[in-house]
Design a protein around this nucleic acid. Sequence first.
DNA 1: GGAAAGCGTAACTCACTGGTTACGCTTTCC
DNA 2: GGAAAGCGTAACCAGTGAGTTACGCTTTCC
Lengths: 138, 138
Amino acid sequence: MSYAFRVDEVAGAIADPVRRRILVLLRDGRLTAGELAGQFAISRPAVSRHLRVLRESGLVRDELVGRQRFYTLDPEPFTELVAWLAAFVRPSGWEHRFDALETEVYRTRRERRDTAGTSRTSSPSSTSGTTDREEHSA
Amino acid sequence: MSYAFRVDEVAGAIADPVRRRILVLLRDGRLTAGELAGQFAISRPAVSRHLRVLRESGLVRDELVGRQRFYTLDPEPFTELVAWLAAFVRPSGWEHRFDALETEVYRTRRERRDTAGTSRTSSPSSTSGTTDREEHSA
DNA sequence: GGAAAGCGTAACTCACTGGTTACGCTTTCC
DNA sequence: GGAAAGCGTAACCAGTGAGTTACGCTTTCC
């Protein structure tokens, strides 16, 4: 028990390249909806909806300031997903170490708060690779 | 640079509840396609295609034995995804620790090999939750 | 050798997702 | 007060993804 409840939403949110790039952009500090949209070739409403998905999955938080809306990362869902993944990677007895990490993360999260940026540029990423199976095509 | 290349495929694969449950089932040891399909209410070909997605994302490996096909977990993509996620969670300077963990994981992975199971039962999981945003609906 | 078991694939349907344009609401500024 | 800025939402459309049934191939077993 414990983890693996919002995993569905969080994994789904992360599964999109645009949303992943939004998250990466937000890693350096908070940005407005307009600043984020400016980084993409797609329309502003499209980005707006991606932001909604990220909001609903809890990965970002929004704050309305005047007529602009600032978006910030919320590391908690990341932690949850990592926790779920850890069960597939841990050598058994891993979770203890993870919990320790989690504690530390929560601590330093506050320290990182209010470290806001304004406008920055970016660089695209994300590629794909092909796989071939062992026994399958043999 | 380093990680974040197969992230798209892996995240997409994990975003589906059926596939996640397959992974959970496989955590206790290898299972045949039929044994896996037997755990779901959906048709066998549907499960078969989920298995293909998991194969192509590298999360599982298959081995043909006679007329049955055994599926096994491959922890490596999990590790890659965790590495990508770590950048959002780490207190800075985290990656070193992660690399250490990764090393350890690879070591113990081999030890876990050949620990095959045959037939088991299961229990469903996965739920969802609603979120409400701070400033948004205010 | 032929029936049955075990799986994957093909063809098709239906729902969802991501994109676009049009629009409306709130805040700023002259 | 009215124009412009900043964003979200609605309505619509095309592509994708997950499910189904039908089918074909290989291996086992009598």
